[in-house]
Design a protein around this nucleic acid. Structure first.
Lengths: 187, 187
DNA sequence: ACAAATACGGAGGCATCCTCCGTTTTCAAG
DNA sequence: CTTGAAAACGGAGGATGCCTCCGTATTTGT
């Protein structure tokens, strides 16, 4: 055995990797321009590959959305860690939620993804969801531990609430954040 | 003039009224079963009318959704008035929001409608939206006037926030209501 | 009963969606 | 460098849905 026992034989083909990346680039653009309902056939066209190739790489629309925004959600998760270190718990939470709204504004897909998940079971939970859950969960856990706030709702649901509003108006979403935090403060 | 001056001539045709009702019935069923994206062609098929007839009566999907749930939204609006008379302002608001969540659970479409509106301009605002706006607006106005709460967010946005969560979990939506109200209380 | 006013219905053009499979490309062993 | 099989490509094709348009059928007032 010249290869690690677990992994089997070949290394990924070059053209496959290239096309995958092209698809992700085209998809990112398309989702940004036309929202999460952008045509998959057009994405394939723009990427210069056949529709079949798109489907081979990303079996479902959600799989594609997920991958496209993996980097965004990762950034958001990292920011949570950073903010947690730089600010007192409650302010860190507030700052991160505001950042979340800003991200939603730029990449409407994240919000759509959170909502989409509503309907049925989606792989979306897999990565984006996990990252988000961890980020908000950490910040809230910290704030609760500090004794400043009290929370009896699933952290992820707070994001859903904010996302619902942010899709329509950033301004109102920002105000919602303050209301939510005020509502969780221990009196 | 034997008719009111404004209205012109004829009375609505019998077949038109019948088909309209059939469409509403079929649509109600379809939306309940398959969500707000149910096929319009299938609705027409089930109703036993041509697709053309469906479109004549309801030019857009939203127009149909709107009509289907007009009774629900109307009931909700009436409830707002009633609760407003029976409870102190803040409790009336809380009670109505809980009722709102219960309605969402039963008819997921209302929530979907609120979200749909997000994307673009929709006739949905016309009736359902107006009724909702008025209901929540009234309750909040009253609570603010009583000096108990302070609100700097669009009332309708509160509903969007709640709807975003309610689509996934009633329990969490109910808790969200308490957080929101606590967050708006004047301290 | 009759004509005008209304309403019906579905064919047709267009846009996706997703699958399936014959062809092409890549990789690595010899 | 050859070579053959694994891996990937790509797009035609079948299905569904949207919406419009207009010739045909029904209803209504007189």
């Amino acid at each position: 055995m010249t290869e690690p026992a677990e992994k089997i034989s070949r290394k990924p083909r070059a053209d496959a990797a290239r096309n995958r990346q092209r698809l992700l680039d085209a998809a990112k653009q398309a989702f940004a321009d036309k929202g999460p309902a952008a045509s998959l056939e057009e994405i394939a066209r723009v990427a210069g590959v056949g529709i079949g190739t798109l489907y081979r790489h990303f079996p479902t629309r959600d799989a594609l959305v997920e991958q496209v925004y993996r980097s965004e959600t990762t950034q958001l998760a990292d920011a949570a860690t950073r903010l947690g270190a730089e600010h007192p718990p409650v302010e860190a939470l507030r700052a991160w939620l505001r950042l979340f709204v800003e991200y939603l504004a730029a990449k409407r897909i994240i919000g759509a993804a959170l909502q989409t998940t509503a309907g049925g079971t989606t792989e979306l939970y897999a990565a984006s969801g996990a990252a988000m859950t961890q980020a908000i969960g950490g910040l809230i856990g910290r704030a609760v531990a500090s004794g400043a706030i009290h929370v009896d709702i699933e952290p992820l649901e707070l994001l859903r609430a904010i996302a619902g509003v942010a899709n329509v108006s950033d301004e109102n979403a920002m105000r919602l954040i303050d209301i939510l935090i005020a509502g969780m403060l221990v009196r």
